[in-house]
């Protein structure tokens, strides 16, 4: 197996302005990427395509006989996130002296981390560790699919609650229906006598993880509060435009949430957004949110995690009543989320 090695290439002075300009544009793209919503790779791709040009120029310089030093060491922290070195080097550890000299002489150096140097690479993992065991077989007791789906999720959730620190100690919301997911979470948010609060991992089918979800954390009440301020929201915009007459607004923007990204990132993004929006509500005026839901698991997880966290901070300031879309039957009211 080949090993990685860095090639530090001095850029000819005639090309230095162009490389510095490319570096500036790459750095700007990277900074913009960090401002985008999670998983939006538009600017990341732009950064990579600009940097690919820098790399190509460096390879051409190398081929033209420009000074090059190979080293197994690498510069870990380059300001701006690119592999272009110039000015003062922050990380001098194990870097060949030539490079320090070039930089002191105001030359621009590009680091290329090349993976094809002959040698024996250390492969990760641990020999004999083996793959995760195959899943256990399971069968529902019910006959209809909704009952079966609910039983399955409840079963996995109970396994997770019984061994929260084990490999199975995680909530797996992928492909669980909107109704089942919300109602099961609601049931398990309820504090139990003698049982401690459990913050369970949340793992999606793509392997990504969202923030932990607090369960057995609150004394809950099923009663719908009366005479509270009522706000009606669609969980996500655009999904059911016919609801626009009923709701006061959409809690989340579909264009930001429904993007191809790891589900854990979507969950985290929805959680942050929801917590921020809940904190915008005036805690001194108790608010009842009627949430008209459509099924996107990370959105449900993120929103209700925010609700639980908000209720922990401000008990009795918020109640949420979920409404589930049931096709021709319209929306059906679910169990209220509020503290006693």
């Amino acid at each position: 197996m080949t090993i990685e090695r860095s090639a530090f290439v001095v850029i000819p002075e005639s090309l230095t302005p162009q490389i510095l300009e490319l570096e500036r544009r790459a750095g700007a793209a990277l900074r913009r990427a960090q401002k985008l919503s999670r998983g939006d790779r538009t600017e990341a791709i732009r950064f990579e395509s600009i940097h690919a040009v820098i790399d190509q120029v460096a390879v051409a310089a190398m081929a033209n006989g420009e000074p090059t030093v190979y080293s197994s060491a690498a510069v870990d922290r380059v300001p701006g996130g690119t592999s272009v070195l110039h000015g003062k080097l922050l990380d001098r550890k194990a870097i060949p002296e030539e490079i320090v000299g070039w930089l002191a002489a105001d030359r621009v150096v590009v680091e290329l981390r090349m993976p094809h140097t002959p040698g024996e690479t250390i492969v990760g993992g641990e020999i004999g560790h083996g793959p995760p065991p195959p899943a256990m077989r399971w069968k529902s007791s019910g006959h209809d699919l909704t009952t079966a789906a609910r039983e399955r999720f409840e079963f996995l959730l109970s396994v997770a609650l019984n061994s929260p620190h084990g490999e199975d100690g995680t909530i797996r919301p992928s492909d669980v229906s909107n109704t089942v997911l919300t109602e099961c979470l609601r049931q398990n948010v309820e504090a139990q006598n003698g049982a401690e609060r459990v913050d369970l991992r949340v793992t999606y089918r793509d392997g990504s993880e969202g923030p932990r979800f607090p369960l057995r954390a609150l004394q809950m009440s099923d009663d719908r509060p009366q005479k509270w301020r009522v706000l009606r929201f669609a969980l996500m915009s655009i999904r059911h435009v016919d609801m626009d007459l009923v709701v006061d607004g959409a809690w989340l923007r579909n264009s930001k949430v429904s993007r191809p990204r790891p589900a854990g990132l979507t969950d985290e993004m929805v959680f942050d957004t929801s917590l921020r929006q809940l904190r915008c509500l005036d805690a001194s005026v108790p608010t009842l949110i009627c949430m008209y839901q459509t099924g996107l698991e990370p959105a449900i997880m993120g929103f209700y995690r925010a609700v639980v966290c908000h209720l922990i901070e401000h008990p009795r300031a918020l109640a949420v009543v979920p409404y589930y879309y049931q096709g021709d039957r319209g929306f059906v009211e679910g169990t209220t989320w509020r503290t006693t």
Binding site: E48, H51, R113, M114
Partner: peptide, 9 residues
């Protein structure tokens, strides 16, 4: 992307 060195390899 910010781990450019790893990303390039």
């Amino acid at each position: 992307p910010e781990s450019r060195r790893h990303r390039l390899a």
